[in-house]
Amino acid sequence: MTNERQTLIAKQFISALPYAHALDMEVTDVGDGYATITMPYDLRLVGDPETGVIHGGAVSALLDTCAGASVMVHGSKPAGTATLDLRIDYMRSAKPGDMITARAECYHVTRSVAFIRATAMDADTSRPVATATGAFTIQTAKGGKT
């Protein structure tokens, strides 16, 4: 699978998701089993008005989307995927005003399950904002809907 093809898959995956579109997410880098997606700072997503910090739920949505994208571009070429479980650890508040970048890696795939890990960062890339680990379903083309 060429990198162009993976980029196309990831971009199509994102643009087809109304919720990813609502949060203005953008795919910036993809490869075999990994993806990087950004989400700009937006006042509508603020969880704590006193500090202007983005709500954890929006960060969860970014990590979930990025993890799903990393499954879609895995070399096993799944036709579709869905989250089975996702654990998110919040290390610190994202800096208000900063874009949030998530990078996910699909590090193992079986016939029916994909395992992922992901990290979310703001402009200070040395200290993660949140990390996630999870399991996703693998839908094969012959298994039904593509």
Binding site: L17, Y19, T65, L86, K145
Partner: peptide, 22 residues
């Protein structure tokens, strides 16, 4: 806007996560 899988269609896992966390 809450849709994450337009084929099914199904809610986005991130929207569900945000709802539960809130």
């Amino acid at each position: 806007m809450l849709i994450g899988n337009p084929m099914l269609p199904a809610l986005h896992g991130g929207a569900t996560a945000a709802f539960l966390e809130t």
